[in-house]
């Protein structure tokens, strides 16, 4: 039964990718891509990575809003197909060769693979954490998480910088078009539940699958839903409070990291006995900032007063 499920899933992934690449119009391509994301989430569960599955499924909601918005906007820049049939054939051959090479490597890779699982579990007690993935994200490899947060911030600045002349301080356009009544109803009913689930995910992330990425993505999705329904207007991007919220997460993370120089004597090292407290502070601050950043990235650059 499980082997069949694996086989079907593994087969569906490339099939859905093919559909997405070759769909007739952009909208179908995006919907195919979203379906692929859900299949991937299932694959992650089957691979024993529930944390990753949650992230994949949650980010899929944001990707959907983002890509469907882009597909419906004036994106269809008609470019003629380029290249001779020979060149296209060579391209397909080259891509197939790369895929075959990767497949050979995967088939020949050692099984069981070299693993850091034992090392990751060994120090969980000192961190007072039960979820080794959270331990990797916020203790062993906290630097990666810090840099990742900054990358998201840089991407947001990049998106904002694409605003028209003199419009960058204004509010971005509301996502979606005119909201239908079911969407409005959904936007009234779902956010309270979503927020509770997000806080739960954040809190249990210490011991069970979950954590700040999943929680932040969920909060961002809830905010976008409210905006799509037109219950609230998108915020002005020039506001000091908004920018403070965005900067708070990385700032707290860096401050705690720098404090590590004072007590244990290393950047991002937590003082003995205070690891759990430091991790919780970082997680809460990052959740708030990441939620705002992810939602604002989807909303796009400011449009000023000129509602386009």
């Amino acid at each position: 039964m499980n082997a069949t499920l694996d086989a079907v899933l593994a087969l569906m992934l490339p099939v859905m990718a093919l559909f997405s690449l070759n769909a007739r119009d952009e909208r179908s391509a995006v919907i195919g891509f979203m379906a692929l994301g859900l299949l991937l989430a299932l694959a992650w569960v089957r691979l024993g990575a529930v944390d990753v599955a949650l992230t994949e499924a949650a980010i899929g909601a944001l990707t959907g809003v983002l890509l469907l918005g882009a597909a419906s906007a004036a994106v269809s820049v008609a470019v003629p197909r380029t290249g001779s049939p020979l060149l296209r054939g060579l391209l397909a051959l080259a891509a197939a060769l790369v895929a075959a090479g990767v497949a050979v490597i995967v088939a020949g890779a050692p099984d069981p693979a070299p693993s850091l699982a034992a090392a990751a579990v060994a120090h969980l007690g000192a961190l007072e954490l039960g979820n080794p993935v959270t331990a990797v994200l916020l203790a062993y490899r906290a630097l990666d998480t810090l840099l990742e947060t900054v990358v998201v911030l840089l991407a947001l600045i990049g998106v904002w910088s694409l605003a028209g002349e003199g419009e960058w301080r204004g509010a971005p356009a509301a996502p979606g078009g005119t909201a239908s009544r079911p969407v409005v109803l959904l936007a009234r009913l779902l956010p309270p539940v979503g927020l509770v689930v997000a806080v739960h995910l954040l809190w249990v992330g210490a011991d069970a699958p979950g954590g700040k990425f999943q929680a932040a993505t969920l909060i961002a999705a809830m905010w976008l839903l409210v905006l799509m329904a037109g219950l609230r207007a998108p915020p002005e991007l020039g506001g000091a409070r908004l920018r403070g919220l965005i900067a708070a997460g990385p700032a707290v993370f860096i401050a705690i990291g720098l404090a590590g120089f004072l007590v244990p004597g290393q950047f991002l090292a937590y003082p003995e006995g205070w690891a759990k407290a430091a991790i919780i502070v970082i997680e809460v601050a990052l959740t708030a900032s990441l939620a705002a950043m992810l939602a604002l990235i989807v909303l796009g650059p400011g449009t000023g007063e000129r509602r386009t």
């Binding site: 980010i59 699982a117 080794p132 993935v133 331990a135 490899r141 990742e148 954590g211 992810l294």
Partner: peptide, 28 residues
Amino acid sequence: ARRGAAAGLPGDPVPQALVITGIVVAFA
């Protein structure tokens, strides 16, 4: 990660954590 399952875990948590970071960066 799955092949590196050890210490009672379903998979090696280090590559899993890297992928979580990667997914968010890819989205950005």
